[in-house]
Structures are given as structure tokens and as C-alpha cells.
């Protein structure tokens, strides 16, 4: 269910190599390339898969960081996925404006 877009920052001269690896990952689509930044839209079946895919993007060779900038999830049954400990003690503002 989750649809997420991830901005992937590549090491210098590695953009091509990263693209090649992303093409081999399922449920991903490169929608924009801006210098050494890629915008990757992911479409997975669960929160868990969504998180795993962001991790996988970050672990690719030549990737400096992979930051999700937009995510949409419509399956309430799965919950928003905040760890219980953090939910008790977080003091910063809620996610939504």
C-alpha cells in the first residue's frame, strides 16, 4: 500500500552505477535525475516492505544517503508504526501540521 518517494544522493561519478542497481530492485521507479540526486518512487505492499526498500536503497554501492520525502499509506490496520517506547517519550510536535 505505501507509496513513497525517496531522494537518493550518490557519490561523485557513481550516479550511473546506482541507477543500474536501482533498476534491478523491484517496486522502484526512477522518476527524475538531478545531478547526483535521484528521485525514486516506490510502491510496496506493507509498511515493513516500504521501510526495507528505503534501507535497501541506502545500502546500495555508491549511495551516500536515501531520504524519503513523501509517503502515503492507506492501510490503517497496520498502524503508523511508531515504536511504543518512542511513542511514550517523544516530546516533539506531531507529524502533521
Amino acid at each position: 500500500m505505501p507509496i513513497t518517494s525517496v531522494v537518493v544522493e550518490c557519490q561523485q561519478d557513481q550516479t550511473h552505477e546506482v541507477r543500474r542497481q536501482v533498476d534491478n530492485l523491484p517496486n522502484t521507479e526512477i522518476t527524475k535525475i538531478e545531478g547526483d540526486l535521484l528521485v525514486v518512487v516506490t510502491d510496496t505492499d506493507s509498511q515493513k516492505q516500504d521501510h526495507a526498500l528505503v534501507r535497501a536503497l541506502a545500502d546500495l554501492t555508491g549511495v551516500i544517503s536515501a531520504v524519503p520525502v513523501f509517503t502515503n499509506c492507506e492501510d490503517l490496520a497496520e498502524g503508523i508504526g511508531i515504536a511504543p517506547a518512542l511513542a511514550e517519550h517523544e516530546t516533539h510536535a506531531p507529524m502533521e501540521v
Partner: peptide, 21 residues
């Protein structure tokens, strides 16, 4: 709806990337 959301995701990401660059 899926297509709409993916387009939204893509354009959001593109906007961020442009800002960054």
C-alpha cells in the same frame, strides 16, 4: 488513485531535488 499518488510522490521528490541542487 494509485497513479495519482505516484505522480504526486514523483513531483514532490522532483521539487525537493531541484531545491537541493
Amino acid at each position: 488513485r494509485r497513479k495519482f499518488l505516484k505522480t504526486m510522490a514523483a513531483s514532490w521528490g522532483a521539487g525537493v531535488a531541484t531545491q537541493l541542487s
